[in-house]
Write a protein that binds this DNA or RNA. Structure first.
Length: 590
DNA sequence: CGGTATGACC
């Protein structure tokens, strides 16, 4: 039916059929001016007071693509006795705007008018609390769940899980999950996402296995796979990732672009570029995300030239880069030490592609310049930035100051970090090591005192290694692993062997605890020793570390790769280190 | 079917 002719019918009083088609017209039109005409008609005939008309109308103007909150509010106030559905529409609409907290106000208004909230109202208002960071508001809703008789509404409880998850209350989210009478796949997926988000990545993988066991009647779906692949990326869990890949193939999800893109990212983040490329090549309709994931994979594994090449191909294929693509490219240049190329890309990004540099882009440039020793210039770059420098960017420069022994600049940089109230233990450790290297003992003592005064908590660093799809975690001076005694014995044995090969623990870098900390017991060394212990000779070792690898452990890994003839991949907070034949692919240390 | 959901700086 033609839209104009339909519309003209509503100028005169209508029969039931006409009113029916009016509703479907409201639901289908994309023209605001037609809605305005209908609005006038609804007001004139008072049909707006009837739920059957006002609900679809309010929905239409409150949700994308025609979302207009001022208009919604106007219509809402014209309804003399709004019912629960009207309120729900308003709460839901506000939940997705830049003023999500207003959803909570609407909810309170609804209570004041004695309109009983249904599970949907609660879900939407919890969503408002999530988006608006209203922690107490969310808890309030949760407290009411039993009283309102909504304790078996899967959707509401899932939204509450999500609420606790983003609030960092992993335990509470799990409690809600445990107490749910019925759990669907989405609830399970939220559990996975909750574990990943809150650092319980290994448990996220456990959930995947639990779902697959078939005992819960909820098989992993495509979203589960996306979430679990993220967890594998974080943990460098290559073998587990391969299992997920297999599952994806069996269930036909391999044709979904987002799944393929996540696979490329996962393999890249496990240091398996060949696998990443294999998946990438087979993607028929590569989008900007696919290309960026691949370029980023090249970049973080130290293949700057390949990253640039990938970018060229991408342009040839007619895919336009976005700001994240340039971040990947620039970080590729910095990891590979390609100063001129990086600068050129940074310029072209702005002139040719009109991308305004953001904090990520600047972060790469600062790293690029700091790495080649242009620390003062890097400082000037930060000071000239149009956006506010974040802690990461200062930390990057601080690392460069450490490598190049620029103490005076390092002191200035730490001031900036303190100003941002973002200084971490690692920053002080870096400064401490700079003073140590320079032999400024009185300064060393001063920093220690400062750290003590400020109560700076040093979180012990952790490393993980995957064996047969199982993740083993080690902390500094770990005593918790079941085979820890064997691990320490093996570590001593390895150190003996490496010393013969010329390895000497560099004693001028200290760990995160205090000056008595034995270098030998850094978590990545424990993980490597366990790998040597528990796998057949020649097996590749893949270690993930949450902080940056120190010079000593880097040397240790280099030597180990030669003496024991093992390929070692260590992924630290910033990048990959591929050790082979006594060498590393990176240029971080020399 | 409203709730989960692909690629970024150290």
């Amino acid at each position: 039916m033609n839209a104009q002719t339909t519309l003209s019918r509503f100028t005169s009083p209508s029969n039931q059929t006409h009113l029916q088609s009016l509703i479907s017209f409201i639901k289908s039109t994309t023209q605001t001016f037609q809605l305005l005409q209908i609005h006038a008609y609804l007001l004139r005939t008072s049909l707006i007071q009837q739920t059957t008309f006002s609900v679809p109308f309010l929905n239409r103007i409150s949700l994308p693509p025609l979302q207009n909150l001022n208009y919604s509010l106007k219509v809402f106030t014209q309804i003399s006795r709004p019912n629960v559905t009207h309120y729900n529409t308003m709460i839901r609409a506000y939940a997705m705007t830049i003023h999500p907290e207003r959803g909570f106000y609407v909810y309170r208004d609804m209570m004041r008018h004695d309109v009983r909230p249904n599970p949907q109202s609660c879900s939407f208002v919890v969503k408002s609390c999530i988006r608006g960071c209203l922690f107490l508001g969310g808890v309030q809703i949760h407290d009411r769940v039993f009283r309102d008789g909504h304790c078996s509404d899967t959707l509401l409880l899932t939204t509450l899980m999500e609420f606790y998850s983003v609030s960092g209350k992993c335990e509470d989210a799990c409690k809600v999950f445990d107490e749910m009478p019925m759990r669907d796949t989405v609830a399970w997926n939220v559990l996975v996402s909750c574990y990943t988000r809150n650092g319980r990545t290994r448990d996220a993988l456990g959930v995947f296995d639990a779902m697959r066991s078939g005992e819960h009647g909820c098989d992993p779906d495509d979203v589960t796979c996306l979430l679990v692949l993220q967890a594998c990326s974080n943990l460098c869990a290559f073998e587990f990732g391969e299992r997920v890949h297999q599952y994806i193939k069996v269930h036909g999800y391999i044709h979904a672009l987002n799944i393929c893109n996540a696979l490329v990212a996962m393999y890249s983040k496990c240091g398996q570029l060949d696998k990443a490329y294999e998946v990438f090549q087979k993607i028929p309709n590569k989008d900007v995300v696919s290309w960026t994931a691949m370029i980023s994979g090249f970049a973080s594994n130290g293949y700057g030239r390949e990253a640039i090449n990938g970018f060229r191909q991408m342009k040839t294929m007619g895919v336009s880069p976005d700001e994240q693509t340039f971040t990947a490219l620039l970080s590729g240049c910095s990891h590979a030490g390609l100063l001129d190329e990086g600068r050129l890309i940074f310029d072209k990004m702005q002139t040719e592609f009109g991308v305004v540099p953001n904090v990520h882009h600047y972060g790469c440039v600062v790293d690029l310049m700091g790495r080649v020793g242009l620390v003062e210039d890097a400082y000037d770059v930060i000071m000239s930035m149009k956006c506010k420098p974040d802690a990461t960017i200062w930390r990057t420069l601080l690392g460069a100051c450490k490598v190049h022994g620029n103490l005076t600049l390092g002191e200035r940089v730490i001031e900036h970090l303190i100003e941002l109230k973002a200084q971490e233990a690692g920053d002080y450790i870096l400064l401490l090591n700079m003073y140590l290297s320079a032999g400024h003992w009185e300064k060393v003592i001063e920093v220690r005192k400062l750290m003590k005064e400020k109560g700076i908590q040093t979180t012990p660093s952790a490393s993980t290694i995957e064996l047969k799809g199982e993740i083993h975690e080690f902390k500094v001076d770990d005593t918790s692993h079941s085979r820890i005694n064997e691990v320490y014995e093996m570590l001593d044995e390895i150190e003996k062997q490496l010393k013969i090969g010329g390895y000497d623990a560099e004693l001028n870098d200290v760990g995160s605890k205090d000056k008595e900390t034995r270098l030998s017991y850094h978590s990545e060394k424990l993980a490597m020793a366990f790998g040597v212990l528990a796998t057949p000779p020649g097996t590749k070792l893949r270690v993930a570390k949450d902080l940056r690898i120190c010079t000593d452990c880097h040397n240790f890994a280099k030597m180990l790769s030669g003496v024991y003839n093992r390929e070692v991949i260590i992924r630290d907070r910033t990048r990959f280190h591929h050790f082979r034949d006594g060498r590393c692919s990176c240029n971080d240390f020399w």
